[in-house]
Amino acid sequence: MDDRLIQIIIDAFPQLLQAFFATTVPLTILSFILAGVISVVAAMILYANVPVLKTICRFYIWVIRGTPLLVQLYLVFFGLPSLDIYIDAFPAAVLVFGLNEGAYMAESMRAALESVPKGQLEAGYCVRLNYIQIMWHIVLPQAYRIAFPSLSNSLISMLKGTSLAASITVMDMFRQGQVINGRVYESLALYSEVAVIYLAFCTLLTWLQHLGEKKLSTYGGVR
């Protein structure tokens, strides 16, 4: 490698990292929180079989899972202004990522809720708990542990997925890379650098996930 290329990579690094922490990370965290809230609410509606709301949830999940994420981003950012709805790029991205991942997470949350043996609900009623108390004390804690691996997978895929926000002008790490590349024309070097940074943080998250799974997988040490 020649010195110029090395210099480009070194110069780009702090800028990419800056964009990563200033934009990619908050975008991921906010979207994930939104997705988490949406998915828990949707999963509980499906689990409890609430009429009407259940149909709305099914519809939401069907639409989201049946359309590409990039198209959803374009619809919200470029499409909605035609209806006089203007959302800035960053909140638009949070909204779309949250809604999108929320639909996938809702399904895994619902499956996790279903997997808690029904007998424990009956036992809860017998000791005079109400539905909310049963969900809060018994079902949700167990479901959360069961769903943990798939929820952390969602977080990891979301971290990578936020790079799509670059296409609606969000200045995330990927877009920062594009901007720098626009000056120096070293696509291979710069996008490799971007890839390596994503890889590093995804690896970190995966490692944390394994740590968490070990801690969470058991109640009292025995499976």
Partner: peptide
């Protein structure tokens, strides 16, 4: 009170918490 064939203990709670939950929350 109801005692089930499959016990139906709350698996995320200790033995003590299994018994106290109905007393405190219920």
């Amino acid at each position: 009170a109801f005692v089930f064939q499959n016990y139906n203990l709350f698996l995320n709670k200790t033995v003590l918490a299994n018994v106290t939950l109905g007393l405190t929350a219920g």
